[in-house]
Simulated scan of single mutants.
Amino acid sequence: MKAAVLFEAGAPLTIEEVQVSKPGPREVLIRTAAVGVCRSDLHFIDGAFPHPVPTVPGHEAAGVVEAVGSDVAHLRPGDHVITFFTAFCGSCEMCVTGRPSLCIDSSTRRAADAEPRLALANGTPLAPFLNLSAFAEMMLVHENACVAISKEMPLDRAALLGCAVITGAGSIFNDSQVRPGESVAVIGAGGIGLAAINAAKIAGAGQILAIDPMPEKRDLALKLGATEALDPSSETIVKDVLKRSGGGVHYAIEAVGRPNTAELAWNILRRGGTATILGMIAPGSSVSLKGHTFLTGKKIQGSLLGSTRFPIDLPRLVRMYLDGVLDLDMMVAERIGIGEINAAMQKLREGHSVRSVITFS
Rank of each mutant, 00 (worst) to 15 (best):
E16A: 01
Q19C: 04
S21P: 00
V28H: 03
I30M: 03
F44N: 11
P50C: 14
P50V: 13
H51N: 00
H51M: 06
P54A: 12
T55L: 00
E60P: 01
V65Y: 14
E66I: 00
E66Y: 06
V68D: 09
G69R: 06
T83D: 07
T83I: 04
F85G: 07
R99H: 10
C103D: 08
R109E: 15
R117H: 02
R117P: 02
R117S: 13
P128S: 00
L132D: 06
M138L: 11
N144R: 15
A148Q: 11
A148E: 07
E152T: 11
M153P: 08
D156T: 07
A164N: 07
I166W: 01
T167D: 08
G168S: 08
G170T: 07
F173P: 12
D175V: 15
V186K: 03
G191A: 01
A196K: 12
A200V: 10
Q207V: 00
L209F: 15
A210I: 09
P215Y: 00
A229Q: 02
T236F: 02
V238R: 05
R244C: 08
S245N: 14
G247Q: 13
G248R: 04
Y251P: 06
Y251E: 10
G257T: 08
E263N: 04
W266T: 10
R270Q: 13
G302P: 13
L304E: 01
R309L: 11
R309E: 03
P311G: 11
D313M: 11
R319A: 07
M320N: 02
D323R: 06
V325F: 05
L326D: 06
D329T: 14
M330Y: 10
I341E: 10
A344W: 05
H352R: 15
F360V: 12
